[in-house]
Amino acid sequence: MSIDIDTARRVAHLARIAVDEKDLPALAGELSNILTFMEQLNEVDVEGVAPMTSVTPMRLKRREDKVTDGDYQEQILSNAPDAREGFFAVPKVVE
Protein backbone atom coordinates (compact mmCIF):
# COMPACT_ATOMS: atom_id res chain seq x y z
CA MET A 1 0.00 0.00 0.00
CA SER A 2 1.34 3.42 -0.85
CA ILE A 3 0.43 6.78 0.59
CA ASP A 4 -0.42 9.49 -1.90
CA ILE A 5 -0.05 13.20 -1.30
CA ASP A 6 -3.71 13.67 -0.38
CA THR A 7 -3.51 10.98 2.28
CA ALA A 8 -0.31 12.49 3.65
CA ARG A 9 -2.04 15.88 3.88
CA ARG A 10 -4.99 14.33 5.66
CA VAL A 11 -2.85 12.43 8.15
CA ALA A 12 -0.95 15.62 8.92
CA HIS A 13 -4.20 17.48 9.44
CA LEU A 14 -5.63 14.78 11.73
CA ALA A 15 -2.45 15.00 13.82
CA ARG A 16 -2.64 18.81 13.73
CA ILE A 17 0.85 19.03 12.27
CA ALA A 18 1.42 21.92 9.87
CA VAL A 19 3.20 20.57 6.81
CA ASP A 20 4.24 22.74 3.90
CA GLU A 21 2.66 21.75 0.60
CA LYS A 22 6.14 21.32 -0.90
CA ASP A 23 7.14 18.87 1.85
CA LEU A 24 4.19 16.57 1.24
CA PRO A 25 5.63 14.43 -1.60
CA ALA A 26 8.70 13.51 0.46
CA LEU A 27 6.54 12.80 3.49
CA ALA A 28 4.20 10.61 1.45
CA GLY A 29 7.20 8.68 0.18
CA GLU A 30 8.55 8.11 3.69
CA LEU A 31 5.18 6.92 4.96
CA SER A 32 4.89 4.56 2.00
CA ASN A 33 8.28 3.08 2.82
CA ILE A 34 7.20 2.45 6.39
CA LEU A 35 4.05 0.71 5.19
CA THR A 36 6.02 -1.39 2.75
CA PHE A 37 8.20 -2.54 5.61
CA MET A 38 5.07 -3.40 7.64
CA GLU A 39 3.78 -5.41 4.70
CA GLN A 40 6.99 -7.37 4.73
CA LEU A 41 6.47 -8.13 8.42
CA ASN A 42 2.93 -9.19 7.66
CA GLU A 43 4.28 -12.00 5.48
CA VAL A 44 5.55 -13.81 8.57
CA ASP A 45 3.19 -16.56 9.62
CA VAL A 46 2.24 -15.82 13.25
CA GLU A 47 -0.76 -18.13 13.35
CA GLY A 48 -1.26 -19.27 16.95
CA VAL A 49 1.48 -17.03 18.36
CA ALA A 50 0.21 -14.74 21.10
CA PRO A 51 1.26 -11.11 20.67
CA MET A 52 4.11 -10.16 22.98
CA THR A 53 3.32 -7.08 25.02
CA SER A 54 6.34 -7.07 27.28
CA VAL A 55 9.87 -8.46 27.22
CA THR A 56 9.68 -9.63 30.80
CA PRO A 57 6.48 -11.13 32.18
CA MET A 58 4.87 -8.23 33.98
CA ARG A 59 1.45 -7.61 35.44
CA LEU A 60 -0.27 -4.27 34.83
CA LYS A 61 0.47 -2.11 37.86
CA ARG A 62 -2.62 -1.05 39.84
CA ARG A 63 -3.36 1.79 42.20
CA GLU A 64 -5.77 1.91 45.14
CA ASP A 65 -8.92 4.01 44.91
CA LYS A 66 -7.47 6.80 47.04
CA VAL A 67 -7.23 10.50 46.31
CA THR A 68 -3.49 11.13 46.37
CA ASP A 69 -3.07 13.85 43.77
CA GLY A 70 -4.48 17.10 42.45
CA ASP A 71 -5.46 20.33 44.17
CA TYR A 72 -2.87 22.48 42.40
CA GLN A 73 -4.92 24.56 40.01
CA GLU A 74 -2.23 27.19 39.71
CA GLN A 75 0.38 24.72 38.49
CA ILE A 76 -2.06 23.07 36.09
CA LEU A 77 -2.82 26.44 34.52
CA SER A 78 0.73 27.81 34.65
CA ASN A 79 1.64 26.81 31.07
CA ALA A 80 -1.63 27.99 29.58
CA PRO A 81 -1.35 30.89 27.12
CA ASP A 82 -4.57 32.23 28.60
CA ALA A 83 -6.41 31.30 31.78
CA ARG A 84 -9.27 33.09 33.51
CA GLU A 85 -11.09 32.46 36.76
CA GLY A 86 -9.48 29.06 37.12
CA PHE A 87 -10.34 27.93 33.60
CA PHE A 88 -8.21 27.46 30.50
CA ALA A 89 -9.40 30.07 28.05
CA VAL A 90 -9.30 28.93 24.42
CA PRO A 91 -10.61 30.36 21.15
CA LYS A 92 -14.35 29.74 20.94
CA VAL A 93 -15.28 26.19 19.99
CA VAL A 94 -18.98 25.52 19.59
CA GLU A 95 -20.80 22.73 17.86
Binding site: R63, D65, D69, G70, Y72, Q73, E85
Partner: peptide
Protein backbone atom coordinates in the same frame (compact mmCIF):
# COMPACT_ATOMS: atom_id res chain seq x y z
CA UNK B 1 -15.08 5.91 42.68
CA UNK B 2 -13.00 8.26 44.80
CA UNK B 3 -10.13 8.68 42.36
CA UNK B 4 -9.87 8.81 38.59
CA UNK B 5 -9.26 5.85 36.27
CA UNK B 6 -5.55 6.47 35.76
CA UNK B 7 -4.62 9.14 38.31
CA UNK B 8 -4.98 9.85 42.02
CA UNK B 9 -7.04 13.02 41.48
CA UNK B 10 -10.48 13.27 43.06
CA UNK B 11 -13.72 12.68 41.14
CA UNK B 12 -15.84 14.97 43.34
CA UNK B 13 -18.41 16.92 41.35
CA UNK B 14 -18.61 20.69 41.64
CA UNK B 15 -15.06 21.39 42.85
CA UNK B 16 -13.13 24.55 41.91
CA UNK B 17 -12.29 24.39 38.20
CA UNK B 18 -9.06 22.56 37.41
CA UNK B 19 -8.44 21.63 41.04
CA UNK B 20 -9.24 17.91 40.69
CA UNK B 21 -6.52 17.54 38.11
CA UNK B 22 -3.27 15.59 38.38
CA UNK B 23 -0.41 16.08 35.94
CA UNK B 24 -1.44 12.77 34.34
CA UNK B 25 -4.88 14.21 33.57
Amino acid sequence: SNAKLFSGASTTFGAEPNSNVAFVD
